[in-house]
Amino acid sequence: MTGPSTIIDPRDDVLGRSRVTDTPELEAFYEELAARNAGAFWKRANAIEPWEPATRYRPTLWRYAEMRAMCLRALDLVRPDEAGRRVVTLLNDSDAGRENVAVCGWLFSGMQAMRPGEITPAHKHTASAHRFIMEGKGAYTVVDGHHITLGANDYVLTPNGCWHDHGVAADGEVSIWQDGLDIPLMNSLETNFYAVYDQPAQTAAYPADDLPLTYGGAALRPEGVAAWEKPYSPVMVYRWEAVRDALLNLAKVSVGSPFDGHMMRYANPLTGGWALQTMGAHMRMLPGGFRGKAHRHTGNVVYNVARGRGCSIIGGQRYDWQTHDIFCVPAWTWHEHVNLDAAEEAFLFSFNDFPVMEALGVRIEEPFPKNDGHQICAS
């Protein structure tokens, strides 16, 4: 095409942005470049260097009642030893989500159900993983020989490169949990490795729950044990009751955040940093009747409603949620949370890719500047 290049964003019609007028000579030049596996940067500069982040992902909500039924159907259709991991994948409602097998951004998520006596064969991978337990009894994981028991609303780590298997004790109950991994990120970096253990399951090499019992004491560090030198949290599992009580105690002495209510980070107690290197997680408590203000930030967040009912306004659209519904907020998208119960607290678990944003120096956040901090809801 000849004539002035189309300016999609009016802001691009300024010195410093690409606004080249194509000519027949330039068109011929472009063809010569293409024949040499090259191109003219100014043809795509404005698109690949946007004024602000432009997400390819959409806010998406998964109803727990519906997804729970899908997970239970999978129990009858596929054996865990055949599937490797019998996970129902949560795909973002976007082309990018389906293409990258992503829940939001470079994050993966799925839901997994297991019957009593079943195991997921032991394996390891480059991708880091963590899990949020939604229901059941008797679930456990074994990570590098450490046997860890799991209960509802517990948050457990499976750091990258660690041998791990999962299961439900024979005297337990059907258990369901949400997986979160950085598989899309590892694949984009072309660093993903996978290996299977030489036995179906590991033999525990330590007393049950040795790591959380050793390192899980708030503000306490154990003496007389070997120094922990691994780059992830030694706690391994964060118990729901302790997290809930910590938030209730925080609420006694703090008004909390105008955006997130009272919020706790699942942290490495030895460093104060994130529990994993590439993914972070929080639990937030929204007081009864809480109406948060809107903000946005770089980085993607996936939420799981640990308890309560409410709604979130994401990109101007309302999404109602209740216990164990899952929803996501794509990067740089305005969002605000509301607790629709006037008397009872709501608890929102979430995981994110903030550690990557911080390591790269690109974690940025800003409040909504209009309408007293609230979006105009389109629905």
Rank of each mutant, 00 (worst) to 15 (best):
F132Y: 13
G299Q: 07
D179C: 10
I183Q: 09
N92G: 11
G315V: 03
S109C: 13
F259E: 05
E31H: 07
V255C: 00
F193T: 15
S257Q: 12
L150C: 10
D210Y: 09
K137H: 14
F327D: 05
L77F: 06
V87W: 00
V20E: 11
V143A: 12
Q112T: 14
N352L: 00
R58W: 01
L220R: 13
T191W: 12
D325Y: 04
E336R: 05
H297Y: 05
W321H: 06
R318W: 07
V237I: 06
N249R: 11
R296P: 01
V362Y: 07
D210H: 15
A35R: 12
P53M: 00
Q178G: 11
N371R: 13
V142L: 10
M279H: 03
K252W: 04
A54S: 06
L348M: 14
A275D: 08
T298Y: 01
D171W: 01
L213C: 05
A343I: 00
E27I: 13
E49V: 11
Y319G: 03
A54E: 13
Y238C: 02
L211N: 15
A83Y: 12
D13R: 09
L75A: 05
G273Y: 08
W332N: 09
W51C: 00
T158H: 06
L72F: 09
W228Y: 15
T141R: 04
L340F: 09
R86T: 13
G167H: 04
V78C: 05
Y155E: 02
Q202N: 12
E32F: 03
S379M: 08
S350D: 10
H146R: 11
A74D: 14
A227H: 12
V255A: 12
M111D: 05
H282T: 13
A69C: 05
H146F: 08
E27C: 10
S109M: 10
N300G: 07
K230T: 11
E366D: 12
L211G: 10
A306W: 03
Y64W: 12
G256F: 03
N100F: 13
